[in-house]
Design a protein around this nucleic acid. Structure first.
Lengths: 211, 211
DNA sequence: GGGCGATGTGAACCGTGATTCACTCCTTGC
DNA sequence: GCAAGGAGTGAATCACGGTTCACATCGCCC
C-alpha cells in the first residue's frame, strides 16, 4: 500500500473495518456484548487483536458503533411500520407494539443485548437514546390520537413511557437469555394482552375515572 | 477467646458480621453495588480485607445478603401499606404505586441499585425475586378488584407486570444516578400520572374496546 | 505464665480482558 | 533491486478488584 491513500487502499480499509463491525455484531447477536471481546472479534476475522485498534480507538467505541447500527435498524423498521400513512393512531400504536415485540422475540439475544444486558457506561448511554427513540415515536402517535379525539392522555410523554414500560416488562421475561423459548401462541397472547392493556388506558371510548 | 464459642464470642462475631453488612449497605446506598468493594467495606469498619472473608464466603454472598435485607425492607413497607384492611382494591393498588414510587424517590441511589444497577449474576437473581414480590402483590390486588367487579383484566399477571413496568419506566428517569434531583411536585405529578394511567387500564367503570 | 486456637492482618496472588508496542511483512515508487 | 512507510502481529503490559494465606496478635484455660 502506497504512501498516500488511494481508492483501493481506502476501500480495503473500509472493508476491513466493516468486517470487524460485522463480526462484533454477530457475536453480540449470539452472546451479547459480554461475548464480544476484542480477541473474539479479531479471531472471527482471522486478524490479530492489535489490528482492531488501527480501525477503532477502543472496544467501547467499536461496540457503541455496533449498538447504534443494530438499534438504528430496529428503530427504522418500527418507524416505517408506524409511519403516518393515513392509518389512525390506534392502528399505528398497535403496530408499534407489535413490531417492536415481534422483532424482540425473533432476535431474542440481540434484543436482550440492546434492551437489558448490563454493560459499561458507553453502551448504557447509547441505550438511553435508543429507548428514547421509541418513546418519541409513541409520543407522536399518542399526540395524533389525542388530536383525533381517539385517545385520552393527560400527560403524553408519561403515557408513552408507560406503554414502553409495560411492553418492556412483558418482554423481559421472554427474552432473558436463560429463559426457555416461548411458543408462538404464548408470544401472541402476551403481545395482544399488552396491546389491550395499553389501549384500555388510552382509548377515549371509555369514560375513565381517575381516583 | 475460648476454645468453644461462648455467648460473648458469639455476640461479638454477630456484631462484627452485622457491621460489615451495615457498612456494605451504606456504601450501596451511596454509590451502588459497584462502590461496595471488599476493601471499602472493610475500611469502613476499620477492619482488614481478610477479616471480611471469615464472616462471608465471598463478596457476592455478602452483597446478596445486603440486597435481600434492603429489598425485603422495601417490600415489607409496601406489603404493609397494601394489606387487605377493608380498603378496596383501587385504593390498595394506588397505595402500592404510591409507596413504591415514593420510597424509590426518597432513597434514589438505593432504589437504583435494587431496581436497575447492572450487576453480577448473583445480584441479578436476587433482583428477579424482588421484582416478583411486587408483581405478586399487584396480582393479588387486581384479583381482588376483579372479584369485586371493580377492575377488568383478561390476564391478571400480565396486567400486574404492565403496571410494574409502567411504574418502573416512569421512575428510571428520575432515579438514574446522574439525573438531577426531581422537585417534589414533579415527583407528585409523575406518580399520579402513572396511577391514573394504570387505573384507566384497569377500571371497570369504563367500557374499553380492545382493537 | 505459658500455650493454644480463635481472630485479625494486608501484601501477594489470580483471573480477566483491554490496550500497547517493538517487531515483521508487504507494497509501491524510484 | 531496494528503501520508505503503512499495515499486521501477538506477547507483554496494565488495570482492576476479588481471594488467599503465612504470619502476628490476643485472651482464655489450665
Amino acid at each position: 500500500m502506497p504512501y498516500r491513500p488511494t481508492a483501493l487502499t481506502r476501500k480495503n480499509a473500509e472493508d476491513k473495518r466493516d468486517g470487524f463491525l460485522r463480526a462484533a455484531r454477530a457475536l453480540v447477536a449470539t452472546g451479547g456484548f459480554r461475548a464480544a471481546t476484542v480477541a473474539a472479534i479479531a479471531g472471527r476475522c482471522q486478524a490479530s487483536v492489535g489490528s482492531v485498534y488501527s480501525y477503532f480507538d477502543s472496544r467501547d467505541r467499536l461496540l457503541a458503533e455496533v449498538f447504534r447500527s443494530a438499534a438504528g435498524h430496529e428503530v427504522d423498521l418500527v418507524r416505517q411500520a408506524v409511519a403516518d400513512s393515513g392509518r389512525d393512531a390506534r392502528h399505528r400504536l398497535g403496530e408499534l407494539i407489535r413490531i417492536f415485540s415481534g422483532r424482540a422475540l425473533h432476535g431474542r439475544r440481540m434484543a436482550w443485548a440492546l434492551l437489558f444486558e448490563p454493560a459499561g457506561p458507553v453502551i448504557e448511554a447509547e441505550r438511553l437514546v435508543y429507548r428514547r427513540c421509541y418513546t418519541d415515536l409513541g409520543e407522536q402517535i399518542i399526540r395524533d390520537g389525542l388530536a383525533a379525539r381517539m385517545f385520552v392522555a393527560p400527560d403524553v410523554r408519561l403515557a408513552s413511557s408507560a406503554v414502553m414500560g409495560a411492553v418492556s416488562e412483558a418482554l423481559v421475561g421472554w427474552i432473558r437469555p436463560d429463559s426457555p423459548e416461548p411458543s408462538p401462541e404464548e408470544q401472541e397472547n402476551a403481545i395482544e394482552g399488552i396491546r389491550a392493556f395499553c389501549f384500555r388506558a388510552l382509548d377515549v371510548s371509555v369514560a375513565g375515572g381517575t381516583s
